[in-house]
Design a protein around this nucleic acid. Structure first.
Ligand SMILES: [Mn+2]
Ligand SMILES: [Mn+2]
Ligand SMILES: [Mn+2]
Ligand SMILES: [Mn+2]
Lengths: 217, 217
DNA sequence: ACAAATATTTAGATTTGTCTAAATTTATTA
DNA sequence: TAATAAATTTAGACAAATCTAAATATTTGT
């Protein structure tokens, strides 16, 4: 597998998780920041290799083999992200781009040793689950902060948007994974929230609350 | 820089250290395990980018910029090798191939953090010097075990051949970097050595002794 | 100094991954 | 349902990195 092929497989996997139904050439082209015609070419090549199911004009999906490949790449990506944060003191907003490179390093033993060094983490720095050697992984709670009712409390367990700008916003407001967040009040007009986190009262827009995953307690 | 370009630059640098005089197209082709015609193509491209001095039929050498690039890649390669051995418990015969991949990861910050994690090592697991951020590095003693006279003692500081088969031979005979080796006797017929290492008496062929660097004490 | 051997470059192809522009298929909607 | 719009594929091109075979330059040996 080339880096490019691996990136396509990963993109198809992620679109499959998010999207509804079949993955179109255009959707994939947009995600890969390339042209639909390039996608068509690549789909033929991946289909040839048995990694995707593709019939022209019908969209694309991963085969079992393709899914296994995708999980392996995502496992590597997320383990490297944990390494960068835990062992090299990177901030969680700096690790994604480097992990995009490291995820293509080929060595089963390397990734197993890394897993061991990190003590078999189950989630990456953004709260995303890390697939195990055999592709199995824990589901993270998919409840959004915006879905909590007034008076209830949740533990912050992940971010939906993991862009650097959002992550730095959270840093600035001292909101981190593991924090308890209590909903004090909700504005009817714009659905913004008054919350209590770490003894501090904060005001969050709905957009923010739509991008924080919580586990209700 | 593509991976391929980086590999060529590295090969030119290493040939420059070993070889005498100009680096020929054929020598480079052999080192890169490719065809001379491919080398000619690549030399034109690298010359275009200002990384090598190349005039046809005249051989090739690195420019200052090319040398800087080479040292940066070698720094990354060797730091990753230290990481693999020190932090992930790899044996010294297993790290080269993985480092060949890791050396191409692009992130200045990553390599600086790695350097820090490893406590700024000056030599890699094979005793090869690790260039610093600015390209400077300590010279390893270039005295071979075969050059020591009878009765003298040296500390093993490096291997000239770092192939897995040679490294495993050393492991099997419990010869490691840092060991003191005393020359007990030398056979006139085949220049093989009787040595004392770690209270053990061993018999080494000249070929072995030609591939161990020592520091005389 | 010239022929033979060797080294190097050139010419032309191939593969991967990309692009633009044109053709075709599918979906929408009047 | 026929025209129009949107999505997708095809055709043809290009750059990077490689190859083989042929041409050319350099070196060597007599
Ligand atoms: Mn990431
Ligand atoms: Mn992540
Ligand atoms: Mn190495
Ligand atoms: Mn080494």
């Amino acid at each position: 597998m080339t880096h490019s092929e691996e990136n396509y497989i990963k993109a198809i996997f992620h679109l499959g998780l998010e999207g509804v139904g079949v993955i179109s050439t255009n959707a994939l082209a947009e995600r890969m920041e390339t042209k639909p015609s390039s996608v068509t070419d690549m789909m033929r090549r991946l289909s040839e290799k048995g990694l995707v199911n593709y019939k022209k004009y019908q969209g694309v999906s991963l085969t079992d083999l393709g899914t296994k490949m995708a999980l392996s790449i995502i496992r590597k990506h997320r383990l490297w992200e944990v390494f960068l944060v835990e062992k090299l003191d990177f901030n969680w907003d700096e690790v994604h781009e480097i992990a995009e490179q490291l995820e293509h390093i080929e060595s089963e033993k390397l990734i197993d040793k890394l897993d061991e060094l990190l003590n078999y983490p189950k989630f990456d720095p953004h709260g995303d689950p890390i697939p195990g050697k055999n592709g199995e992984f824990l589901e993270r709670d998919n409840l959004l902060l915006s879905q909590l009712s007034i008076g209830s409390t949740g533990i912050c367990v992940g971010v939906k948007d993991s862009s650097a700008v959002f992550l730095r916003f959270l840093d600035k407001n001292k909101i981190a994974l593991g924090n308890e967040i209590k909903i004090l009040d909700k504005e009817e007009f714009d659905n913004s929230l008054h919350i209590l986190v770490d003894q501090r009262e904060l005001h969050l827009s709905q957009q923010i609350a739509n991008n924080l995953y919580v586990k209700k307690i």
